[in-house]
């Protein structure tokens, strides 16, 4: 996994609540057996005016000029600003794969759906929960100021606006450590292999039918 330490990144404001993972990456792209290459299909049905198919060359597809990701001022954005319940619905990890592939490393929203939130950490994306008022302020500032960037410091757990206003965010120490160091979670878990084996033996003795 890619490590995440600090980022000073352009912000793209996606002003919608309940953005679901079907919208983030529509089902036809889930047929891929690869982990990469989903970026051009991110928000496909909102981003393009024609129907996207896997393998399509997106550079020649008609863009929806009203969609925020297509506006010139947000090109190269690395921070996605969103509303409540971002990433709800399907568990598809293709959603964070597409977001990461597009170049985003941070998502800020008042709330996230659980599975999506988890999936972000597995892919070097930092999802930040901020208060609804805080998010509202960021939206307003972002709309008002072209080139609006946020500075995100994972070690310090802070987000700083261009005017120097700062707020802190929560993250569990385990997730923070893994993200700062880009650690392979499976490798870490396998350090506990003896404990897993011991648990399994005890579990099997108590409920042998689970192992039939």
């Amino acid at each position: 996994m890619k490590a995440f330490t600090t980022l000073n990144g352009l912000v793209c404001p996606l002003d919608r609540a309940n953005v679901d993972t079907d919208a983030i990456i529509p089902k036809q792209f889930l047929k891929s057996i690869k982990r990469s290459g989903f970026g051009p299909y991110l928000f496909d049905e909102w981003r393009y005016t024609n129907y996207g198919e896997p393998g399509m060359d997106c550079s020649t597809r008609p863009l929806n000029p009203d969609f925020v990701l297509n506006q010139p001022r947000y090109q190269g954005a690395q921070v996605l600003l969103a509303r409540d319940n971002f990433g709800c619905g399907s568990s598809r990890e293709h959603a964070p794969w597409a977001i990461e592939d597009q170049g985003f490393r941070v998502i800020i929203a008042p709330s996230f759906a659980d599975i999506f939130f988890n999936n972000c950490y597995k892919n070097g994306i930092l999802p930040i929960v901020a208060s609804a008022e805080q998010v509202d302020t960021l939206f307003k500032e972002c709309f008002a100021n072209e080139g609006y960037k946020l500075n995100v410091d994972l070690e310090a757990q802070t987000v700083t606006t261009p005017s120097g206003q700062s707020f802190s965010f929560d993250i569990t120490p385990t997730r923070k450590h893994n993200l700062l160091n880009g650690l392979d979670e499976i490798g870490l878990t396998l350090q506990h292999a003896d404990k897993i084996k011991a648990f399994e033996e005890k579990h099997q003795a108590a409920q042998p039918w689970l192992f039939a």
Partner: peptide, 30 residues
Amino acid sequence: DSHTSTHGAFGALAHGIGTSEVEHVLATQT
């Protein structure tokens, strides 16, 4: 698959997970 919650009908603790977690469960059973 997010609809794994279905199996909670049996009094099982059933979660939908992402693909990285699928790999984690395959490799570690946890």
